[in-house]
Simulated scan of single mutants.
Amino acid sequence: MNFRVGFGFDVHQLVDGHPFFLGGVKLEADKGAFGHSDADVLLHALCDALLGAANLRDIGVHFKNTDDRWKGISSLILLEETMKLLTEKGYKVGNVDCTVCLEAPKVNPHIPAMQKAIAAKLGIDEDAVSIKATTNEKLGFIGREEGVTASAVALIYK
């Protein structure tokens, strides 16, 4: 079997009154991530991890922020398109491990819904989707609630 591992990272600015999508789930929040698509930082990091593992470059190559096709689009669709690219190269996903870093809102209550949404798009069991959340202990732009980051690791195989 051919195993590969990829790493992804993403960051988005938080903006007052903007919707906040995380892991394919809309969260109730005073601020939301801003970007060309729905700015789902967790799914963007995950797409990058998957693409990197398959040596398919990164999310910006496939879903340019200058292309109106992707404007405002759900990042679940970007994840679906990423999986099509992996499938074309003969890969399947083994498991993924993701971490999101932000001060608010609390993420833990939403993790089961995120796992379900992601597992469905990846074609794997929810148990193979790990999502963790942490704060930045009030330090830096994350601590000031100006932004959110996410990182992800993905194992793929043929």
Rank of each mutant, 00 (worst) to 15 (best):
M1A: 09
R4H: 14
G6W: 03
F7S: 12
V11Q: 04
H12I: 01
P19L: 07
F20K: 05
L22K: 08
L22Y: 06
G23K: 09
L27E: 04
D30Y: 08
K31L: 08
F34P: 00
G35L: 02
D40R: 03
V41C: 13
H44R: 03
L46C: 14
C47T: 01
A49C: 11
L51E: 01
A53K: 04
N55V: 00
D58W: 02
R69T: 06
R69N: 08
W70I: 04
G72E: 13
G72Y: 06
I73Y: 06
S74T: 09
L78Q: 05
T82G: 15
L86S: 05
T87R: 05
E88C: 08
Y91K: 04
Y91W: 09
K92I: 11
D97N: 07
D97P: 03
C98R: 02
C101A: 13
A104T: 03
V107I: 06
N108T: 12
I111N: 08
A113F: 11
Q115C: 09
Q115D: 09
A117L: 04
I118D: 00
K121C: 02
G123L: 11
V129G: 11
I131H: 11
K132D: 10
T135V: 14
V148I: 15
T149Q: 13
A152L: 12
V153E: 08
A154D: 13
Y157I: 04
Y157Q: 10
